[in-house]
Design a protein around this nucleic acid. Structure first.
Lengths: 341, 341
DNA sequence: AGCCGCCATGTGAACGCTAACAATGCCGTA
DNA sequence: TACGGCATTGTTAGCGTTCACATGGCGGCT
């Protein structure tokens, strides 16, 4: 049994294909890389040999010589949330059609250190670019330090980001829903905010605040939540005690869910006594009791756009810093109405 | 400027480190791989040089020669759902500490063909093992064909799987909740099932059915849902028309949410008129109106266990076919009570 | 006919790392 | 003193690709 006798026992390599097709390994490589200068007949023989041997190119060898890993990294904080999970899905779909693999790194906590760890982890893997799904402010800071080695695109980060970013126009969404409630005739609109460490929360807060100011409406004290239904519930208990409250805008749908329950327990009719609106339009939102008026974000689209931007940077080599704002859409359901009387 | 003058302009490689430390590249390699036979003093010099140059080993080169990519693949169908998303998170955490990278492939649809595509995609990336998060029956079938090249572990698949698997004991969970409702005094329990193409749905159905049979309770017609709140809502509209219904077990929490809304709209009190239970214990479940009695699954734990099993297979080389069932836990909340009267 | 140029293919040398083996130096022991 | 053995380090040869360049054949032009 000499070295060149057969490929039995080990995975076939390019040379095996070449031998079977009666060409040089380089010609096989040409076929694999769609080089134009290969005779059709030769190409066919090579392709046939490839199928015959069930040959698969070795990605490590290719990566070594081309210096391209064909891999993108995704850093995310809490993939359990509906938003990040949907984005991840959109990203993977888009990456596939752009010819990239997707590798993930989840952050355990949100400090700059974890972010740096995650980036290094991806870096060690030789990713060609990174998408960051961490819309928190601290993350943005962390990002500024780390980047520079590979292209980075932030998804869901506000305009503060020092890297190219795509985000939903949270401010516009918040304005739309607040405006809508005021137009219904409410004297003012209360707000249950997300954690102030999140850019989305800040933007939504800012949009709400600006709209009230423009309308000359009084600005009630902000209730601080943490995105969870629990925090919305707690906010609801507080608001239920105040008879002045007729409209509440929650910074996300989960908090709105908790709020609905609290108001319900407190015997407040929705929307009869109090109108409630959320943000996100999670799939369940239309099945809340009552169905929730909210602001729809297309997370999948966001992921796809971010990926496009990243690929452009990688392949175009440009290091521009574009910023894309995807407009959200107000979705009206039964949890909001004109105030009583 | 000769070739060996400096590392300016290109990324440092092992030889650069070696030169700076005054050793051979092999010694650098030894330090990097924690070889025991390196003098402390030498090791220090090498480490210092590594830091000095900010040297990073080239993973492609290492993968090429070791024939190990240090990468695991995760195939998932709908990462948007709470379950898969949580598992993914658990997996990534566990993979990191086991020294692996995680690469993902999402299925666009559920046929064997897509599954095969996803597996090939991961295969091309030279993953050392694959975790499949597709609890659907068709996926299991697809799996049987593809596997063989690399170790595969299915997560969330039932005992039908031809590969090692970890899953929640859906049947036991369904039995527990059904038993509980019967013990409260309900004559029987209605069931809103998940799609029959899902193993989890089948197992929950089977557990419910078996418990009714054991108790000698009549088995009402099953309502078929698709996991969505919408389908639960539709089931709720139907059930609301039947005055005999006093207890409903929904195969997941989202459907329970829709069901709650339908019953609520139909003027049925919960749990006064009808008790409702779900399955999963998503974070929002305790904020439904009323808070939902359900069966808790620890998805993160499931992911971690699956990863452990996979790593064992890869590193141990054994190809055993263990099957792990993680017991779920019944969580009692206010949506269930003894029947009226 | 002779020559140029293009097309199709082959040859050799990287890419950056680890594995296998060789070489060196130092120790203790016979 | 000589020698075996161990700890430490160096040398060489791949791993499986792609890249750069060399080669050979063929047609069209002068």
């Amino acid at each position: 049994m000499t070295a060149d006798s057969s490929t039995i026992g080990r995975k076939p390599v390019m040379a095996d294909v070449a031998r079977l097709a009666g060409v040089s390994h380089q010609t096989v490589s040409r076929v694999l890389n769609d080089s134009p200068n290969v005779k059709d007949q030769t190409r066919d023989r090579v392709l046939h040999a490839i199928r015959e041997l069930d040959y698969r190119p070795n990605s490590a060898a290719r990566a070594l010589v081309t210096r391209r890993s064909q891999t993108l990294g995704v850093v995310s904080f809490d993939t359990t949330l509906y938003g990040p999970a949907s984005m991840l899905y959109g990203i993977e779909q888009a990456a596939r059609s752009a010819g990239y693999f997707v590798s993930i790194a989840s952050l355990r906590s949100l400090d700059a250190r974890s972010m740096q760890e995650a980036m290094e982890r991806l870096h060690d893997q030789a990713v060609e670019g990174v998408l960051v799904l961490a819309p928190q402010i601290s993350a943005v800071g962390a990002l500024a330090q780390v980047s520079g080695e590979v292209p980075v695109v932030a998804i869901g980060s506000g305009p503060q980001a020092r890297v190219p970013a795509v985000a939903v126009d949270n401010k516009a969404g918040a304005r739309a829903v607040t405006r809508y409630l005021l137009d219904l005739g409410h004297r003012t609109v209360h707000h249950v905010a997300g954690p102030s460490t999140w850019l989305d929360a800040q933007m939504r807060l800012a949009g709400w605040r600006a709209t009230l100011a423009e309308a000359g409406a009084a600005e009630p004290a902000v209730l601080a939540g943490d995105w969870s239904a629990r925090s919305g519930y707690e906010a609801g208990l507080q608001l239920a005690e105040d008879p002045e409250v007729t409209a509440v805008f929650c910074a996300n749908d989960h908090m709105a869910l908790g709020l609905l329950r609290a108001l319900n327990e407190a015997g407040r009719a929705i929307p009869g006594d109090i109108s409630v609106a959320g943000f996100d339009d999670i799939p369940e939102a239309s099945y809340f009791t009552p169905p929730l008026t909210t602001v729809r974000q297309d997370f999948g689209e966001l992921g796809r756009r971010g990926l496009e931007l990243l690929v452009e940077q990688i392949e175009g080599g440009v290091r521009v810093r574009p910023r894309m704002l995807v407009p959200p859409e107000l979705v009206l359901r039964r949890s909001t109405s004109a105030p009583r009387g």
